[in-house]
Write a protein that binds this DNA or RNA. Sequence first.
DNA 1: TAGAAATGTTTAG
DNA 2: TAAACCTTTCTAT
Length: 269
Amino acid sequence: MPEGHTLFRLAREQQAAFAGREVHVTSPQGRFTGQAEMLDGRVLDDVTSWGKHLFASFGPDVVHVHLGLYGKFTSGTGLPPEPRGALRMRWEGPGEDGEGVWTDLRGATACDLITDGEVQLILDRLGPDPLRRKSDPAKAFARISRSKVSIGALLMDQAVLAGVGNVYRAEILYRQRISPFRPGKDVDADAWARLWADLVVLMKAGVKAGRIVTTEREDRERRRGPALREDAHYVYRRQGLPCRICGTEVRTEVMVGRNLFWCPTCQAV
DNA sequence: TAGAAATGTTTAG
DNA sequence: TAAACCTTTCTAT
């Protein structure tokens, strides 16, 4: 489930499990073998994320991972399972208590060994990430406020804003009652400030929960309880179903190659 | 069992 | 704008 919150959480977990110790790195699939051999047995310094990118530093060498649409890390303690399928990269470490920790990467769009300079090039072309304290929302607004492109398309542009994907796009626009078709230049400073603040809250909640939950707590509790999966979203993948607030049928349409979901009544303009 | 779809990005045209 | 890429999971037959 890779939007920015997933990568933030992975970075934090991998940092806690592996950093400061030697890591046994392998690539049973073969597509990362040369690089894995070069890193094998070296100490992992730290793991960080920006947007949907993950960076793991072994001294001057950095493993850069982008999960893309299908990529996934799985992990556990004790002995790792027998490698099966297309296992791009496996890490094994002693863990906190020497009992052993491991993590497996499959299906990623990117898993490369890069330099600090190349890391900087990637960061340079990413917009602010709502999960990073250092992020400046004004940078994103500067681009949005002078663009004729729809806000629904702009939110997906990682150079404008880093970490938001198709689920957060649909949900944040619903929560802010903004039509995905509104041109960026018609989103005023107040609306942008509210949207950004809401993204920070939502994405932090996503890090904590390990999944995207965007419906208000009261809204969920009114129905059945806080953790019901089908109550997690307002409009994402709810096309044809009644809007949770007004009852209008939720609509869907492809925007910039991705399925967009919105309520035509709550998000009229 | 086959096929489609999926929370993404890059490259080609 | 379309195709390609990588893998898993759900649905339809």
